[in-house]
Design a protein around this nucleic acid. Sequence first.
DNA 1: GCGTCGTGTCATTTC
DNA 2: ATGAAATGACACGAC
Length: 592
Amino acid sequence: MMDMEVVHSGQQDMDLIDILWNQDIDLGARREVFDYNHRQKEHELQRQRELEEEKRLDLLREREKALLAQLQLDEETGEYIPCPAPSAPLQSAVTSLEVTQNVNFTEENGDAMSFDECLQLLAETFPVEETESMSVPSSNNIMMSPEQPPLPVASLSPAPLSPPQRMSPDLEQAWMELLSLPELQQCLNMQMEEALDTAPYPLSNSPEVQNPNFTFYPMTNLTDGNTNSLNVCSAEFVNTLNGPAPSMAPPDNLSQMEAKAPQLNTNFVTEGFCDIFCPNTILEESGGQQGLEENETPMDLYSLSPGEAFDRGKPNLTAEIPDSDSGISSNTSPNGSSPPKSVYGDGSFGYSDSDMEEMDQNPGSAESDYSELFSLNFQPDDHQTAVAVAAPLVDVPQQQERKPKHHQTDPAEESGHSNAPFTKDKQKKRSDVRLSRDEQRAKALKVPFTVDMIINLPVDDFNEMMSKHQMNEAQLALVRDIRRRGKNKVAAQNCRKRKMENIVGLEGELDSLKEEKERLLSEKSQNITSLKEMKKQLNTLYLEVFSMLRDEKGNSYSPSNYSLQQSSDGSIFLVPRVKKTFKTEHNRLSSL
DNA sequence: GCGTCGTGTCATTTC
DNA sequence: ATGAAATGACACGAC
């Protein structure tokens, strides 16, 4: 019987665990997360991988030195260019590749090192073996979790003999070396940012674009540093580098980058990642469809079909943003605790206020940085500014991924100043955070006003300002929300201030009333004392007056039988106490 | 872990 | 009737 109960309770526990597990699955966690052995195993594997990576990195550094030794530093561009007249002949394995590359790269910018030149150098540096496998080397799959399917390489590259697939392992490793160069890393990052800025939502209909493996892997791993990019960058991804690699381009050269993007040689196999990272190229290729014009911002795209665009865009904004604490959000389910009534109503615009709140759970991190970096006084038509302003939308989650543990530490704490700030500083910081949230939202929707203007302008000026600018519903709703919140915030502060003042005033009033009470009580006691004294004096005077009165026979009047009374005209009468006696007698008789 | 405080936000009421 | 201001209530983070 006991066993049955134990089994039963055990079964209940398991059911409970399953329920909780299912909830966690909904929240994005897997059961392995809770398995200690599994985690330990993962940890050991991770350490093993790290050791291997260290060895590989050492090897790669040596090879990189050897490679750079054969390159010349161009003093003008700061790039490495190949030494003139390479003597070693190309190996046979590269021949077909070379033909392809020569065809495709002959028109490229002569300043930069072309693809076949790189290959030539690599071939000189590293002996190339005959290609053994036509598939992408297994290193691509090293970092893949078992449940993830391998990259559909074939579908990525329709070209029958895409060069990277024909690379030998050594050659590919050399490519990986190139990829590990900081210049190329930066170039890749810039291309990614640019692509995401200009087309936040993949415009291509190709299934690869919608495959999470393709969008997720490069984005997440490129930001992780050299190691991961080495492991993860597929050969197709290498193709995105076929343009002249602008080395160490400053961030404000985005427009130049963008101008260069369409120049990429699209004859080369680019349908893979290039579809994702170089949307301009795709747009050019797709039958003259201009798509994004130079000054057309992503917002314009939203306004073309707000519903779909935002439905697709929303996961980009929210799904990759971890909740501030432990990645579990109470609002994960669509029917979550967010208020049913939203100012955005039918959800035709992707941001509901509660969604924005989720996005804003990270007040101290990148957002405030961006709010400081970018002024809100931009013109919506300024494409370059629009790109710069749109950048935070995609960059914020990346930065959050980089610093998930520090997302709520302020810079002062990070820099070692862990002393508790003064209250005023804290208030200012919180106010800044609040401001940065709304600024972030305003930037996201490209609202052409500053938050300060939205909140602090008088009603008439505000209405005039709103009427002067054509804004869509989402922008109007956001502006109204910002103004409402800003006003309400000030009102709440004033309300609390008044409340505190009322409390302080009431406390002061209470004190003064207590003092008044004490004063009145003492006055009362004084009055009582003086009254007693006066009565006493009056009684003495009364008796004195009585003692001086005499009747016709010269006898004195008895105060018990007579009393003195004053009439209304001031004259004094001696009245016998007959009435009283009579009254008393009458009362006595009636009582009998 | 719990209580307190300061603050922002929302819903509702008051003006 | 309408919009702004005021306020109660709640949530959240910091301490």
